[in-house]
């Protein structure tokens, strides 16, 4: 690409002061990024679905045909529109209190995404801090933090969350705080091992010899280089948190009625699962699709972040 255009004589080799041939030019960064993003099918699907979910969560009040909390005992257990007795009034039917399932589903997106994002952020901050410190300092610090990580890994998340939630009483805030405090292990493990490799990178040495402060080195030299891996972990933990919220809500220790949590919707429908299966199938499918999409997104990001992804 560059050779065919070099000027043949020594004049190009004697550019005053440099004598360094040309610096190879690369195509503009953005076109490469978009090509990568959409060249990966799983990633593209994940991006589209998650993007849609975010839009739905933001515009839920505009999209929902009914008030998700409005009860209408006269219209209980209306089946979805494709069913013989369904109607366009309630596209996905109603629940045992006559609330519109579609509206509750749309509003439920808000709860799931909020939980996913906030939990991933809290646990990301905790886990990354611990992992980076352990990886960077090594020795005693690493031994102590690794011990904490191992302790955390030995705890069954669902049982601990259930126990604590039953002590404090379930609520949206409780679920977020509990999961945020419990799901940091993967952040810690990943950031620890990536930081360990970076600790002896010569650019970190260079910054240290200059007398850069520790926060500068950790935040400006180390963190940007582990951000790629952390974003991948973040997507996985979001999916994990959404599923755990559904589990806790299903068991009655999570989000409390009448909030339209998908897990709660499944729990409320479980008495009807044999004769009106859609009552639990619809929120179940929503949960499945969102979690799958987030995982696809994470896998895709991991592939992009793999060696050779940059440079």
């Amino acid at each position: 690409m560059t050779t065919s255009s070099v000027s043949p004589t020594a004049s190009s080799a004697s550019t005053p002061g440099t004598g360094l041939g040309e610096i190879p030019l690369q195509p503009p960064a953005w076109s490469r990024v978009t090509r990568r993003l959409f060249g990966h099918r799983g990633l593209a699907i994940g991006l589209i679905v998650v993007g849609l979910a975010i839009l739905i969560a933001i515009f839920a009040p505009l999209l929902a045909p009914h008030d998700p909390y409005h009860q209408d005992i006269a219209n209980r257990m209306v089946p979805p529109v494709w069913h013989d007795k369904g109607s366009w009034e309630h596209v996905l039917g109603t629940d045992k209190l006559g609330r519109d399932t579609l509206s509750r589903l749309l509003f439920g997106t808000r709860i799931s995404l909020t939980i996913g994002l906030v939990v991933a952020l809290i646990s990301g901050v905790i886990g990354t801090t611990l992992g980076v410190l352990a990886g960077y300092f090594g020795g005693r610090v690493d031994a102590v933090i690794s011990y904490v990580i191992t302790t955390r890994l030995a705890m069954p998340v669902v049982l601990v969350a259930l126990a604590l939630a039953s002590l404090t009483g379930g609520s949206l805030t409780t679920v977020i705080v509990l999961l945020g405090l419990l799901l940091w292990d993967r952040f810690a493990v990943v950031s620890r091992s990536v930081t360990q490799q970076m600790r002896d990178a010569e650019y970190v040495y260079a910054a240290r010899t200059l007398g850069c402060s520790l926060p500068y080195i950790l935040l400006r030299e180390v963190l940007p280089n582990i951000a790629g891996s952390l974003i991948v972990v973040m997507t996985l933990e979001m999916a994990h948190a959404i599923l755990l919220e559904a589990t806790l809500s299903f068991l009655g220790m999570g989000v409390q009625p009448p909030l339209p949590s998908w897990g709660l919707m499944v729990a409320e429908g479980k008495a009807y699962m044999f004769f009106q299966p859609w009552v639990i199938a619809i929120p179940g499918i929503a949960l499945f699709v969102l979690v799958l999409a987030i995982n696809l997104l994470g896998d895709g990001l991991r592939d992009l972040n793999a060696p050779g992804g940059r440079n």
Partner: peptide, 10 residues
């Protein structure tokens, strides 16, 4: 340093 690939923050 020795390694010009590791001595500059990418």
């Amino acid at each position: 340093f020795q390694d010009p690939y590791s001595s500059l923050n990418p």
